[in-house]
């Protein structure tokens, strides 16, 4: 009887797991290494912590936004409202709408805005079961409209100095936003791997029906994921605003798309979290490097757009074909 249930010989099984593990390495790592080598060969003077730090500092808001995006994509949802959230937080901080509020209060208000918008997204998507793409697109449209209306189409004003001061601090020649981003990524990694919520996320992503039958609160998991994504968008808005130093009503429209792109590049697709938290982290770094490489080769903005689109398409195809077979 035991012969009938015997598993394949262990060496074959080992080879299979090795292969399937290799296939699970997020494309972001390859892209990152290729770009780094390219840069090292062509512009060695750029490989320098000060130069790189400046470039990487610019993608810190994107990297923080990605932390939320990867969470919602792992529960088979999506959040395209990041641009609107970042924009409205920039407005609140730079317009002086809250009078002489101190920086601490502004931070709290910004985070509260992010969390509540994320909660609204989550309730509509998780409870109402509305389409995530359209809900978050609509919320984004509304937020952009609200900011433009409040600002009457003009840039609102200046950001309190405290934000810029914190933004420009460096520890061990690493800019503070980069350190903050890395720490936040680490926190998210621990949160997902060591807390029950992470298990819920994995189960809902892998098989929502089985998750339901295992007693996982599927709706609540989706709602929490969106709420955290809102919080991340709020933090991203703070960092972005600090970096700009002024109010603006036209920036970041592509942030959610870039976040989706970096997430997919980092090995996280709808329902699957093979790349973990660090895969998308390197996805964002790859985008930063790509920007550096293309700029140093004199590629115009249009070319950068095309490259970005192609990378998303190729990364998605890579995963699409894998799940197909």
């Amino acid at each position: 009887m035991t012969a009938a249930v015997k598993i394949p010989s262990s060496s074959k099984a080992a080879r299979e797991t090795l292969l399937s593990r290799a296939a699970k390495v997020p494309p972001a790592y390859f892209v990152f290494v290729i770009l780094l080598v390219t840069l090292w060969l062509t512009r060695p003077q750029m490989i320098n912590i000060n130069v790189m730090g400046t470039f990487i500092r610019q993608v810190a808001p994107l990297g923080i936004l990605v932390l939320g995006q990867l969470l919602v994509m792992r529960v088979r949802s999506i959040d395209l409202s990041g641009a609107g959230v970042v924009l409205i937080i920039n407005y609140v901080i730079s317009s002086g709408i809250l009078g002489d509020a101190n920086a601490g209060l502004l931070v709290i208000v910004a985070l509260a805005i992010g969390v509540s918008l994320g909660l609204v997204n989550g309730l509509l998507i998780g409870k109402r079961r509305a389409s995530a793409v359209l809900v978050t697109l609509a919320v984004n449209t509304i937020l952009v409209g609200v900011v433009q209306f409040l600002a009457s189409g003009k840039p609102p004003g200046n950001v309190p100095d405290a934000f810029g001061d914190v933004y420009n601090v460096k520890y061990l020649s690493l800019p503070s936003p980069v350190i903050f981003w890395i720490v936040l990524t680490g926190v998210m990694a621990v949160f997902l791997s060591r807390f029950v919520f992470g298990r819920h996320v994995s189960s809902v992503g892998e098989n929502p029906v089985a998750a339901h039958f295992s007693g996982v609160p599927v709706e609540r998991t989706v709602i929490i994921a969106h709420t955290i994504a809102g919080l991340m968008a709020g933090i991203a808005g703070l960092v972005q605003t600090s970096s700009l130093g002024v109010g603006s009503i036209r920036f970041g429209a592509d942030l959610p798309l870039e976040a989706v792109a970096a997430t997919i590049l980092g090995g996280v697709v709808f329902g699957r979290g093979d790349g973990g938290v660090w895969g998308p982290f390197f996805g964002v770094l790859s985008f930063a490097l790509l920007f550096v490489v293309m700029t140093s080769f004199g590629v115009p903005d249009a070319g950068k757009l095309i490259a970005r689109g192609l990378i998303i398409m190729l990364a998605a195809t890579y995963y699409g074909l894998r799940t197909n077979s």
Partner: peptide, 25 residues
């Protein structure tokens, strides 16, 4: 700008009214 807000709100209301079985995308 207000027109944008109104358009977005309409989309949001319609999407919220179309209930589905599936959660997410």
């Amino acid at each position: 700008f207000v027109q944008t807000i109104i358009k977005g709100s309409i989309l949001l209301v319609i999407v919220a009214l179309q209930s589905r079985k599936k959660i997410g995308l």
